[in-house]
Structure formats: structure tokens, C-alpha cells
């Protein structure tokens, strides 16, 4: 287990180093920021002075180590446009993204697992076909199309729910659903396949031949074993969730971090983009590590074998 985890740690570090290099290069390759900051142009001396002040006249290796040091000590720079500290721009919008994302995750897990499990246990029933049909649809429709559909139905046609912003609890319903339903579909589909796989295993037949009741077999032998591969899928689903939140925030005009990221691309505001990329990637890498750790806790084979 120790070897397994230390290998994973190493991989996470390599990934983060790669991300830091990409983020650094994106900013450096974009040229000097003066063109965007001072559209009216600069004199030769001022440009030289600015270059010196921001260490742009140093060799690229020294610039990279300086940048690494700053990133590690929490100095992420300021926006090229608004001169706000980058950290603050993201921190202000973090609560909205976190709230919507975690609500969606909770809903997805608490609905997806039972839906998938039930439809595997009741194969061929009409309810199963309907559930998997919905799951199929939820899996194929992208977030932004789904969100617009919900806005049309609940916001304008039925006039039940507000369609943009986050000013009241009702405002959360549509964005959270938009984010959660494709995940419910993904988890249900996978859970169903994993359950069916497990049902075919010899130990389930053994349990049945011992005379155990169906309910007990389902709970103790099928469900528990089917949950193991699900943990891996959860990691992928969470990465998808982070991806989807960028779109959901755009559709519902939410004050979240995804908006900052996208507008930094539009404005070519590279310091803001740099931090966004490093932070998003860091989050994904961290989640993958946690999933790996969970995996070793759940599956004794990984713990022992490594």
C-alpha cells in the first residue's frame, strides 16, 4: 500500500509540475504584457524599467524559479486589467461555485447509486427501461443545452423558478439540477453495469446456494463489491463536474470562478488565467489522490498487494 501511494504521490507531483510549466509558458510565450496594459505605447526607457522591475530581463530559468517560489508562497500576482489581486478575484467567487458543485455532487451520489442498483436488480421491468432511458438521455445532452432546456421549461413556460443569479435558495435549484442530472445518469449507468457484473460472479452463486435471502445477497455481496469500481468512476465524474460548472455558471449567470477563468481567456488576462489553471488542475490532482487513498481503504487487495 505504501508503495502504491508513494507512486501516486510522485505522479501527482509530476502532473502539478507539468501544469506549472504550462501555465508559466503560456504567460511567457504570450509576449510582454505591456501591449495589453498600455495600449497607447511606451517609451524605450519605461519599457526597459518595467522589464527590470518584473524581472523579465532575467534568463528564463531564473524567471521560472522566481515564479515557482511566488506560487508556493501564495503570491499569485495581480490582474493585468483591473490590478485586483488574482487570489482575491477567485476567492470572492469561490463560495458560489463550491455551493452549487457540492450540492450537485451530493444529489448525484444519493440518487445515482440507488437508481443504478435498483435497475440492475429489477432487470426488464418497465421502470428499469424508463430509468435507463432517462439516464441515456442525461448522459448524451451537454450541460449548456440541458440548462437552457430547464430555463425554458421552469423559468419561462411554467414560471416556477428563477433562471439567473444566486440571490435566493430557489435560485440554486436549476443550476444544481443541470449539474447533477448528467452525473446521476453517469453514476447510475456505471452502477448498473457493475452490479450486473458482480451478480454473475461465482461467490454470488455460492451465497445463493448457502440459502441466503435475495435482499441479503444484494446488500452484502453484490452492492458492496460493485461499489469498489464506482470509486474510480467518482473521480472521473468529479473532474466532469468541475468542467461542467464552467458551463453552468455561464448559462445561469452565476457569480462563480468559471466565469473569471473564461473571461480571462477572452481578455487575454494571463496572470488571472495562470492562477485559474494551476488552481483547477491542483484541485483535480488532489481529488484523484483522495480517490486513490479511498481505493486502498475500500479494496483490501490494493492494500495488501500494492
Amino acid at each position: 500500500m505504501l508503495r502504491f501511494m508513494s507512486w501516486r504521490f510522485l505522479r501527482a507531483q509530476v502532473t502539478m509540475l507539468f501544469v506549472l510549466v504550462v501555465a508559466f509558458l503560456t504567460v511567457r510565450l504570450s509576449g510582454e504584457p505591456f501591449d495589453t496594459m498600455f495600449p497607447e505605447g511606451l517609451t524605450q526607457e519605461t519599457a526597459q524599467a518595467l522589464r527590470h522591475r518584473w524581472n523579465l530581463d532575467l534568463p528564463i530559468w531564473e524567471q521560472f524559479t522566481l515564479y515557482l517560489g511566488k506560487m508556493l508562497t501564495g503570491d499569485f500576482g495581480r490582474s493585468l486589467f483591473t490590478h485586483e489581486p488574482v487570489w482575491q478575484m477567485y476567492a470572492e467567487r469561490m463560495p458560489a461555485t463550491l455551493a452549487v458543485g457540492s450540492l450537485a455532487l451530493i444529489i448525484a451520489i444519493s440518487l445515482g447509486i440507488p437508481i443504478g442498483a435498483l435497475s440492475a436488480l429489477r432487470r426488464g421491468a418497465v421502470t428499469e427501461r424508463m430509468l435507463m432511458g432517462v439516464a441515456f438521455l442525461g448522459y448524451a445532452v451537454p450541460h449548456f443545452v440541458f440548462g437552457i432546456g430547464l430555463i425554458l421549461l421552469f423559468g419561462y413556460y411554467l414560471r416556477l423558478l428563477p433562471a439567473s443569479g444566486l440571490s435566493s435558495p430557489q435560485h440554486y435549484i436549476l443550476p444544481v439540477l443541470t449539474l447533477a442530472i448528467p452525473m446521476v445518469a453517469g453514476i447510475a449507468r456505471f452502477m448498473r453495469a457493475a452490479m450486473l457484473d458482480t451478480i454473475g460472479q461465482p461467490y454470488v452463486m455460492t451465497a445463493a446456494s448457502k440459502g441466503l435471502g435475495n435482499g441479503r445477497i444484494a446488500r452484502r455481496h453484490v452492492l458492496r463489491n460493485a461499489m469498489v469500481p464506482l470509486v474510480t468512476v467518482l473521480g472521473l465524474e468529479i473532474a466532469g463536474l468541475i468542467n461542467g460548472s464552467v458551463f453552468v455558471e455561464a448559462v445561469f449567470s452565476l457569480p462563480g470562478v468559471g466565469r473569471v477563468l473564461v473571461s480571462s481567456v477572452e481578455n487575454r488576462d494571463f496572470t488571472v488565467l495562470q492562477f485559474g489553471v494551476v488552481a483547477y488542475a491542483g484541485l483535480v490532482v488532489l481529488i484523484n489522490l483522495v480517490i486513490d487513498l479511498l481505493y486502498t481503504l475500500i479494496d483490501p487487495r490494493v492494500r495488501v498487494g500494492g
Binding site: 504550462v22 480571462s264 488565467l273
Partner: peptide
């Protein structure tokens, strides 16, 4: 292990 969207956004910027 990296979301495609992030790399795409970097490249587009």
C-alpha cells in the same frame, strides 16, 4: 489526469 477544457483554454488564450 488533467481536464481537457483547461488545456484548451490555455491554448486559446
Amino acid at each position: 489526469s488533467l481536464p481537457n477544457l483547461l488545456l484548451m483554454l490555455c491554448g486559446i488564450a
